[in-house]
């Protein structure tokens, strides 16, 4: 008997093991759902896969009378738009502030404690302020995402800048680099992979803020739809929507990882 940590699965077994929990989850749901449907065919809590399919076909392929839109795609478009705008602005703010504050000692002394305190403000607690200031439209939703994520990204970039070896910065100066040249030629390229990672880690939080904002007020959006149909206990819409959001988030995470690998090959070599 070896110790349990010394048994490693073969590559083929790894794939099967990775799929297993998903299959289990679906299987357990299916069993539960069939059992409930056998007692009450109109059960709303655990509808069968056929009703998921029917609902999604209805939302994805027929035009809604009230909004004149294909609801599934319209909701997806609205939510993604908010998410991308929010994440993009957060990443930009985080990058610029993080590099400047992380690299220039005077800025660092001034703003580091401020950012540390600022990032602890719970974004959802200031949501009413945002609604008052920016109205109930798109603006307040995007500001909420930025408010929630930009401080995290800023601090992460700052830490990365601070962790670059002093030797590199001194070396750059002995090669005649100005502050601007060091930022663009030494700091920025080395921070970019970390920024992408940081955005990946923020994806979950970004979705949280999108859905929270949509739940309170919106004309459409994945979160809005979920909270709307909740009134009718429409699990046949809610569950597929949750799965769809999860899939979108996973795809974004995957895409960001691939972009980082292609754009910054040296970062992977270093890690290896």
């Amino acid at each position: 008997m070896r110790r349990i940590i010394n048994y490693a699965p073969s590559p083929g077994a790894k794939v099967i093991l990775a799929i297993l929990p998903f299959v289990l989850l679906v299987g357990v749901y299916f069993l539960g759902s069939s059992a409930r449907l056998a007692i009450d065919p109109a059960d709303k809590l655990m509808p069968g896969f056929s009703s998921f399919y029917a609902s999604m076909m209805r939302l994805g392929t027929t035009i809604d009378i009230a909004t004149k839109q294909y609801l599934l795609w319209w909701d997806t478009w609205l939510s993604l738009q908010r998410l991308f705008l929010g994440l993009g602005i957060s990443a930009l703010i985080g990058l610029v502030l993080g590099i400047l504050v992380g690299f220039v000692p005077y800025l660092r002394a001034t703003f580091e404690p401020f950012f540390a305190a600022f990032s602890l403000i719970p974004p959802l607690a200031v949501l009413p302020i945002l609604f008052i200031l920016f109205g109930l439209g798109e603006q307040s939703k995007i500001v909420l995402i930025v408010f929630g994520i930009a401080p995290f990204i800023t601090r992460d970039v700052m830490l990365r800048v601070a962790s670059l070896p002093t030797e590199q910065i001194v070396k750059a100066q002995t090669l005649g680099a100005s502050t601007w040249q060091m930022i663009t030629g030494v700091i920025l390229p080395q921070v970019m992979p970390r920024l992408l990672d940081s955005v990946r880690l923020s994806l979950g939080a970004a979705w949280l803020f999108v859905i929270a904002a949509e739940a309170i007020t919106a004309e459409g959006g994945l979160g809005y739809r979920i909270f709307l149909v909740r009134r009718y206990l429409a699990m046949d819409v809610i569950l597929p929507y949750v799965a769809w959001i999860t899939l979108l988030a996973f795809l974004m995470d995957y895409a960001l990882r691939k972009i980082a690998a292609v754009a910054y090959p040296w970062d992977r070599i270093k890690a290896a």
């Binding site: 030797e167 070396k171 002995t174 005649g176 040296w266």
Partner: peptide
Amino acid sequence: EPTADRGVVFQRYSVFPHR
């Protein structure tokens, strides 16, 4: 401050990993 008239080689980290 460090200037271009003095070159330096440290024990480690004196090259840029991203180039």
